[in-house]
Design a protein around this nucleic acid. Structure first.
Lengths: 336, 336
DNA sequence: TTGTACGCGTTATCAC
DNA sequence: GTGATAACGCGTACAA
């Protein structure tokens, strides 16, 4: 247990000043070849590892960013997290991850902890409006990039997909197949992805034919919510023939509920949703979905964060990534 | 953009010394009610957030731990990560996550970065033997708890499941159904979970009847590996009637391959494996598996890490968590 | 109960 | 090219 080696001991061993060691390590300033090689061997011999705490205290850079999501357990966010970590790793940055469970108080608690840690920046999937957390970050000069969801009235970079467009395409798909009675299994009211998807879907359905019926059930982005709201649909009159689930977990919950009740998809009811399941997790690709490029979203968000860190004064950007509609069995062949 | 507030400014505003502010914040030492309340309002008014870098530099505690896994994208590790984060969050600790992709060089690179950051401890799923990383950590006095996999010849805490026991139970299940020709789709040779599972399975099969046939195909814990090795099985002579996949991804790869080739599971071939898929991700629970308590493993590992941090001299413990065998359709009803 | 001096390990600054 | 010095923001040790 070599007592902790500091830069001074390396300096002494190499016969130079601490400052010279620092210059070698950071490739800053001029150092003679001779001194450089002596420092390098001293570092190797002593097994010296610089202390990032001290470094960060002076240089205001910690080499750490944070990813705040609602639940890493959702494969959409897991994939995003992998993209984030890969991109961060390219520049030797490390990533802290936080789960808010869609809870604003938790989000703010984490934000405070992250500010304490002096992270270089934060990637935030806002639990809801995100106002308070964003203010907090701004007050303390911590760069933030919002991911996946939009926020209103905030000057901040956003990397996300166009939920309206995706929802519209799913609606069109179902309308072409002749459906007239729809249901939407939505997430939390007030979250941009929920509101955008619901609004676009409803609009498309109503524009196609004002006498189409459509019921919207809010809940949250969970399997349980999918179950509960699917149950309500089955008792509705007229019973919807096509259902739009606002995310992957809701789709799965609904599918499970339908199966339990002996309702066949797509024969008895068509089902479409947002967010594809990773190919590695699924043996029957079955659900018709709008797939969002989660991995790419993670990478792009990191790139944008680094740009923001480099240039804090640039005006905020909103980056919209393309989605892809993948038609599979669950949307059916249309009404008979 | 309040310039950065320090403890001194809080002190001045409250009319006390910085030290008193520190005492209030850390609830250490005596502080009069009067001073305390003045400090508290000053903190609130200024929106002061302590600097963990400076704090950690003095106190040798950063409130950060790390989780090093092979791939967060594997739901087994995702679930574990959630357990880790929840447990860490209970005591306001933050978690750094790293993906090694089963690569030892990457593992060591991360370990060095984590030492630089002076994390309080590391939870490590060793890519392979883990020797070098563990030595590195020991040299620098960083506590480590090994998770999911065993390591040999190292004095270190380990939290994992009994792979031998699980593999044996799966073998017994298949043997009772009358199978005589087996195949194992294994992971990397040299990883304890691979070796334990293979060895226990082979032993059980051979002990039951020495004339049973069994072929073992090594690869890695990926869907691709499942595909490739499943292909080899189908060409074998005699063709195995029962297959044991060493983890969830291999199971899925094999299942996909069988389906593509028109082979029915379990009618044509029985399939069992390690690691259940989260209920939230699956609409047909189909695979017969040995399920490991990933979430619990994450929590326990954190607890053990904190114990180790508290008491670095205690002798290392190996904690074995129970597994559960879940019998579903994929193991079939036995040979006709 | 409160305050002062000092040091944690590093880098920015300015001299040589 | 290189080094001495101060400073980053806080907590430990001790004194008052």
């Amino acid at each position: 247990m070599s007592a902790k080696i500091t830069i001074k001991e390396v300096a002494k061993k190499a016969g130079v000043a601490a400052m010279t060691v620092s210059r070698v390590l950071n490739r800053s300033g001029y150092v003679s070849e001779d001194a450089r090689s002596r420092v390098e061997s001293a570092v190797a011999e002593l097994g010296y590892v610089p202390n990032q705490l001290a470094r960060g205290l002076r240089s205001k850079r910690t080499g750490t960013i944070a990813l705040v999501v609602t639940d890493i357990t959702n494969p959409f966010f897991t994939t995003m997290a992998r993209g984030v970590e890969d991109a961060a790793s390219d520049t030797s940055n490390l990533v802290l991850f936080c789960n808010t469970d869609e809870n604003e108080a938790e989000e703010q608690r984490y934000m405070r902890l992250l500010i304490e840690k002096r992270v270089d920046g934060v990637l935030l999937v806002p639990a809801q409006a995100g106002q308070q957390s964003l203010e907090l970050a701004k007050t303390h000069g911590v760069p933030v990039v919002v991911v996946d969801r939009a926020v209103s009235g905030q000057e901040v970079d956003v990397v996300r997909c166009d939920s309206r467009d995706g929802a519209t395409r799913l609606a069109d798909l179902l309308l072409i197949k002749g459906h007239q009675h729809f249901a939407v299994l939505a997430g939390h009211h007030g979250v941009s992805t929920t509101d955008d998807r619901v609004e676009a879907f409803v609009t498309a359905v109503k524009q196609s034919n004002p006498s189409n019926s459509i019921e919207v059930h809010y809940g949250d982005f969970s399997v349980r919510s999918g179950h509960e709201n699917a149950k309500k649909i089955l008792n509705a009159e007229p019973r919807p023939t096509a259902v739009f689930a606002a995310n992957n977990f809701i789709s799965i919950g609904a599918l499970q509920e339908f199966r339990q009740q002996g309702i066949s998809v797509p024969e008895d009811i068509a089902l479409v949703g947002f967010d594809d399941l990773p190919a590695a997790l699924v043996t029957f690709p079955f659900l018709t979905v709008v797939a969002q490029p989660a991995y790419e979203m993670g990478r792009r968000a990191v790139e944008q964060l680094f740009k923001r860190i480099e240039n804090p004064e640039a005006s905020p950007e909103e980056i919209l990534l393309p989605t892809e509609i993948i038609v599979r069995a669950s949307s059916g062949n249309g009404l008979k």
